[in-house]
Simulated assay, not measured.
Amino acid sequence: MIRSISQKDTTEITALLWVIFEDMELSLLNKIPKNKVLEMVGEAMADPTYRYGMNRGIVFEHNGEIAGVSFGYPAIDESVIDEPFKKVLIKNGYAENETLFVDKEAFPKEWYLDSIVVHKKYRGLGIGSILLKEMDHLAINAGYSTIGLNVDIGNPKAKKLYSSIGYKKVGEIVLSGHRYEHLNKPLMNTRMAN
């Protein structure tokens, strides 16, 4: 079942997000131990403006366990989404200029699908597709007509999935030293179309 995120979910969610952090080879991971990074991300999640703020994400729960999670935000928010994490870093004695993400990811005027991850034991069950559809609805409800995401050039399987549901390449971007294709798709307000 799809539901909103609550404070009790932070440990499970941060463990899922770690998969993304490792895939992106974020430089901060070489400076701060894993448990501390996850603890600080979990703490920052309480701030609604954070990239992984509870109000910016949804989970798919199966048998009381978080099987998948997705986060998104309007591109216009990108200038403030990492400020809560910076505050937590400073509070924990780390340098003010440290951050998990150093590059801008969203394209102008789009709702940006920041992250989607499904727990390894639940992959292949369609949970990712359900989360993607729900993110479309969140974007539409926020007044957006385009949703975008980045897919690693070295991940053709993911690109094939996104292409199959209407995403098209509109550019390329480098994030943490890795090349990504930026894909987006138009959103149709099905509520208005009916």
Rank of each mutant, 00 (worst) to 15 (best):
S115G: 13
I116Q: 02
V117H: 11
V118A: 07
V118C: 07
H119N: 07
H119R: 11
H119A: 11
K120C: 09
K120Q: 12
K120N: 10
K120F: 09
K121Y: 13
K121N: 10
K121V: 13
Y122S: 01
Y122F: 11
R123Q: 13
R123S: 09
G124I: 15
G124S: 06
L125K: 05
L125G: 00
L125R: 01
G126R: 00
I127P: 05
I127M: 08
I127Y: 12
G128F: 04
G128E: 00
I130R: 02
I130H: 02
L131C: 05
L132N: 12
L132A: 15
K133E: 09
K133R: 09
K133I: 11
K133H: 13
E134V: 14
E134P: 03
E134S: 06
D136C: 14
H137A: 08
H137R: 13
L138Y: 12
L138K: 12
I140M: 05
N141D: 15
N141P: 11
N141Y: 15
A142Q: 10
A142V: 09
G143Q: 05
G143N: 04
G143L: 06
Y144E: 11
S145K: 10
S145D: 05
T146I: 14
T146K: 15
I147Y: 02
I147N: 01
I147P: 01
G148S: 15
G148L: 08
L149E: 03
L149N: 01
L149C: 10
L149I: 03
N150D: 12
N150I: 07
V151G: 04
V151I: 10
V151A: 07
D152W: 15
D152P: 08
D152Q: 14
I153T: 11
I153E: 06
P156Q: 01
K157I: 13
K157Y: 12
A158Q: 08
K159P: 00
K160C: 05
K160M: 10
Y162F: 12
S163C: 07
S163G: 13
S164L: 05
I165K: 03
G166M: 10
G166K: 05
G166Q: 02
K168M: 15
K168W: 07
K169W: 14
V170P: 00
E172F: 12
E172A: 12
E172R: 04
I173R: 10
I173Q: 11
V174I: 15
V174W: 04
V174H: 03
L175D: 04
L175Y: 07
S176I: 09
G177W: 01
H178I: 10
R179C: 12
R179Q: 12
